[in-house]
Nucleic acid binder design. Structure first.
Length: 312
DNA sequence: TTGTGTTTTATTGCCTCC
DNA sequence: GGAGGCAATAAAACACAA
């Protein structure tokens, strides 16, 4: 838009005229401007010199836009500069420094401050407003990056905790399985002939399967059995029950755990016998019934998790 | 030198607030 | 309704590797 280029035009002209008048008699360091309670640069026409003063302090003599700095000082160049088509011109390092300092003090721009900064820097107020606008956008992006890093590290910590808990859970589960089997064996020995025809259900699984279930953390068959026995209605023996076709058993089968598949003998157990069996063999252990979703792994990385969250 | 990616300046359109 | 802020975007300026 012409106004923006025009801003550079007018402001540069004003600063140009200033600089050609020579250095300001009473220079004000940049720090003094921002650190002092009262702003010595915000003093009417005198304040217009403040940026030039700062610029002088930085060792340069021409606080103009860089594109002009690269040119000679002749009137022809000046004329050429003022008549060239509108171009985007970067602010000088000093102008940016000045704006940065001001931004540090307050990242919002009141109208008076905008006017004053524009005067000090020899820019259009609109240019100052745009600079603050863009600066706030950059600051927000940076802030988001910081927040992201904080969240990421927090996530990593939580993920590590989660993984540790998962391992601990599997370890405890394996321990429970072992103890349960020991208990079942003891009960079996105690029960003796009474259950001789039926205890084929509870034969000890092969050692390999035990080891696998302990090491890989899979839901062991015995644990599954335990869960089913623990249920109020022991329909595990009911071949008609729809539960038989799904749940843990089917999931185990689907999981390809063929090392030890629980195959109940459906031949001759009455409901009473089942109840008795359940009561006699049921250790006082209650496991929460966990659905598959309860074991779902979290996303592998924080990024995935963030994207996952974002998708909701 | 040139192609390409990044940064900076500026515009546009929408939204909110007074 | 106007002013100002913000998000999205364009485009110029800049940096840099090949």
């Amino acid at each position: 838009m012409a106004a923006c280029g025009g801003g550079g035009f007018n402001s540069n002209l004003s600063v140009l005229i200033q600089s050609q008048r020579g250095p300001c008699a009473a220079s004000q360091p940049l720090e003094a401007f921002f650190l002092s309670g009262t702003s010595p640069t915000f003093l009417g026409s005198r304040s217009v010199m403040s940026f030039a003063d700062v610029h002088q302090a930085n060792g340069s003599t021409r606080p103009f836009l860089r594109s002009y700095d690269h040119e000679d000082n002749g009137d022809d160049d000046l004329d050429e500069y003022f008549h060239q088509p509108e171009k985007k011109r970067r602010l000088t390092v000093d102008q940016v420094q000045f704006l940065e300092k001001s931004f540090e003090v307050e990242n919002k721009l009141e109208p008076e401050r905008k006017i004053q900064l524009a005067k000090d820097l020899g820019l259009q107020p609109r240019q100052v407003a745009i600079w603050f606008q863009n600066r706030r956008a950059r600051w927000k992006t940076k802030q988001l990056e910081k927040d992201y890093e904080v969240l990421e590290s927090s996530y990593d910590g939580l993920k590590a905790d989660y993984d540790n808990l998962l391992k601990e859970k599997e370890r405890l589960k394996a321990e429970v399985n072992l103890l349960t089997n020991e208990l079942l064996l003891k009960e079996k020995e105690k029960g003796g002939s009474e259950l001789s025809d039926k205890d084929a259900f509870y034969q000890e699984p092969p050692a390999k399967a035990m080891a696998d279930s302990a090491s890989e953390g899979e839901v062991s068959t015995v644990a599954s059995k335990q869960e089913d026995i623990s249920s109020d209605k022991s329909d595990m023996f009911d071949s008609e029950s729809p539960h038989y076709a799904d749940g843990v058993h089917s999931s185990l089968l689907e999981a390809g755990d063929s090392s030890y598949v629980f195959q109940p003998d459906q031949s001759d157990l009455s409901q009473d016998e089942e109840d008795n069996l359940s009561k006699s063999l049921l250790p006082p252990l209650v496991f929460p019934k966990l659905e598959d979703d309860d074991y779902s792994d979290p996303p592998a990385s924080f990024e995935d998790h963030a994207i996952w969250c974002w998708s909701y």
